[in-house]
Nucleic acid binder design. Sequence first.
DNA 1: CTGTTAGCGCGTTCAC
DNA 2: GTGAACGCGCTAACAG
Lengths: 333, 333
Amino acid sequence: MITMTEIARLTGVSQPTVSRVLNGNTSVKPEVREKVLACAREHNFQPNAMARGLVGSGTKLIGVVLTDISNSFFADLEKYMEQAARKKGYSLILFNSDYDREKEKHCLDVMRRYRVDGLVIVPVAEHDAAFREDIKALDIPAVAITRETDQMDCVYIEHAEAGAQVAEHLKSVGCEHYIFVGTTEDKKYLGFAEKMKETDLHFEQKLTLIETKNSREIQGILKAHFDTHPGKTGIFAYNDRRAVQVHGILQKLGISMPERAALVGFDNTYTCEYLYPALSSVSQPNREMAEEAVNILIKNIGQPEGRELVAHPMGARLIVRESSEISEKERTK
Amino acid sequence: MITMTEIARLTGVSQPTVSRVLNGNTSVKPEVREKVLACAREHNFQPNAMARGLVGSGTKLIGVVLTDISNSFFADLEKYMEQAARKKGYSLILFNSDYDREKEKHCLDVMRRYRVDGLVIVPVAEHDAAFREDIKALDIPAVAITRETDQMDCVYIEHAEAGAQVAEHLKSVGCEHYIFVGTTEDKKYLGFAEKMKETDLHFEQKLTLIETKNSREIQGILKAHFDTHPGKTGIFAYNDRRAVQVHGILQKLGISMPERAALVGFDNTYTCEYLYPALSSVSQPNREMAEEAVNILIKNIGQPEGRELVAHPMGARLIVRESSEISEKERTK
DNA sequence: CTGTTAGCGCGTTCAC
DNA sequence: GTGAACGCGCTAACAG
């Protein structure tokens, strides 16, 4: 691996001159310039980012901590973040926290070793004070993505608002009962429930909760529900993975969508449109969110200090598909 | 960010002593040792990986180039690679080549800047001589993953053998016609076709190819096929993404699985078992492959030079599910 | 325009 | 056991 000093030797100039040529800051005599450039190209010179980082000009590294990249929503995010980072000359060093605070902390430590210029993180527990301490202790720009987070820059989805959209939709297609797949702490649920309660004081009595991820158990709950509840039931799942699972079980049980069950997922992954009936889902502005996070981060990296916190909420949009839209059959009756 | 020199100053010893304590090589007087360790812990010292890399002890960085992390198969791989790497004290710097040779080359260059100790790559074009040149020019250990690659270490799936398994299976469930979704250069297809031809000289006349990814077009082809071909058709898709797409279209067209169409995908992603009917798919030893790649790589990083090439083929296993197994209905007739 | 000098944080001699 | 001195590759003054 060739170095600047080596190029200097080969071309008979000093190493700083090579540096000047390769970084194109100050002016260098054209002929020297050409000679150096030629030599660098010939040997496919790549500057040693380590050495650069050492002298304090930054590492051009962004640490990214995701909870789980095998979730395709996060995989998409990482892809877009990489694209955005690359445009500005940054690379990504990636970690999975596995939804584990301990591991998350470990990731933060390791990133520090590489002296990343900044980091983007999907927090395991965004409201944990210890987490925010950890971030603050790093003393580098950091932006949280996906979740709203106090005291740090964040780019996130208005989950409550999205949940409300789903509520509105499910009401509009004539649901009489509801099932939420997920936990009640989820902001999606909160927004969903709140919107429901606006027009229906008895909403909670019409609601069934599915917290398990076990197919057999879900099937049991769904069967029991539909055996005893005539009319249409709106089902809202906290992500597409669960929604697809429910979709399959409904099919298996022979419960028709959207006539008896109007199903809505979250994330709008590619599977949605491949399913039959196609799955309605809330689409998050994935790419925009990723780009915005990276851009905010890089801007902060440039700033000397003392900036204001930015919280950038982004809107999600429900994409209605066959699994929940008013069907031909219903419309014409 | 505290440094060894700083710790040395605080504890009144020399910087090399701090280094000795923190790296635990040579012996240091216990009391000094304790004092230094205490100070390091107090300030949550993290060694500067840049400086370490600079002095030549390696960067503990592994470059990973995937074609597209938003494919959940690769996302899984990356997750397992990270786990394996972490166990040995390595971190991953991740790139997506987007199936683009140019970008791939760029990734390689950038990795070089960070002086990664080695790299794992899913080649865009594993048989491209230029690609192998690029890798060789890097002059660091590299292992190709997923695809068999000449002249470099590789861990891969025996796609042809997997294709043969699928052929065997589809024959055994009584298919009279076949559809392959993908391209004929695909090794899966080659193994599939070869196995078929062993027992059926007219196989190619019984085969329909679907190369498009467009839903409407696929639907057209499938409809035409099933309108004109009675009996059971075996469908083999080169990955689950396509298989799920076909699954939905078959459902939409009212073509029953597995009676009229026996469908098999590839990758065995989580969606397979959530679908109804559940999707048969070829399961690759994902985790093992990732771990093996990383382990081979790290072993090579340790070696001074001059090792032999290792090519580690791994077996895939067809997981038969409802979409292609002999159904109750068929069995009892 | 260009060379000299210094120093980033660390591991590695080599003396003491 | 431990400190002094050096160098990895590079950027940032500073002097010419």
